[in-house]
């Protein structure tokens, strides 16, 4: 049963990711991205990271994808895509594709990561208390920096989206 769930979520996630990348319409791409995130959240649940699965759905699916959809509708971009591949970028893409394919194949066939049997290791990501303990002891400085970064990002967005008024001198 668990193996079937893993296969289902893995295939679902990959199909939706491909749909995100190849879809001509930006709204459909955003919807595929949403489904892909749901698949990743399912995989997180199977790894006992319930809090992260919940946060992924809340932050990504709830806020980020909604923001994407708002912007797509605000800009109202028509999906005209006159695909004209430049020679240089095509060569670069082919080389990158070859390298990635070779890397994935060699990892799939010969890669072996030593790991203890996870069924004996405790699912530490399952409860909320260890997170809070770690965040406010070991990772206290990153948490502070993160808060400051969010503040700066908010100020940056406000400055970027402000209408530029002509100055008195320009008038």
């Amino acid at each position: 049963m668990g193996s079937f769930l893993f296969d289902f979520f893995a295939i679902f996630t990959v199909i939706c990711a491909v749909g995100t990348v190849v879809n001509k319409n930006a709204v459909n791409a955003a919807m595929c991205f949403l489904l892909c995130l749901v698949g990743v959240a399912g995989l997180f649940v199977q790894l006992d990271a319930y809090l992260l699965a919940f946060l992924l759905l809340l932050v990504y699916a709830g806020a980020v994808v909604a923001l994407f959809l708002f912007i797509i509708m605000l800009l109202d971009v028509q999906g005209k895509s006159a695909v004209s591949f430049k020679r240089l970028s095509t060569v670069a893409a082919v080389i990158a594709a070859g390298l990635l394919a070779v890397g994935l194949c060699s990892f799939a066939t010969r890669g072996h990561l030593d790991a203890p049997n996870p069924n004996y290791a405790s699912g530490v990501g399952a409860a909320l208390k260890p997170y809070a303990y770690q965040l406010f002891t070991t990772y206290l400085l990153p948490v502070q920096i993160m808060g400051f970064l969010l503040l700066i990002a908010m100020l940056g967005v406000i400055v970027l989206s402000k209408k530029v008024e002509p100055t008195e001198a320009a008038k």
Binding site: A49, A115, A121, S122, V124
Partner: peptide
């Protein structure tokens, strides 16, 4: 993080 039984990876996520 899950396979090694530690929480650090989860906190990074």
């Amino acid at each position: 993080s899950r396979f090694n039984g530690t929480l650090d990876g989860n906190v990074f996520v």
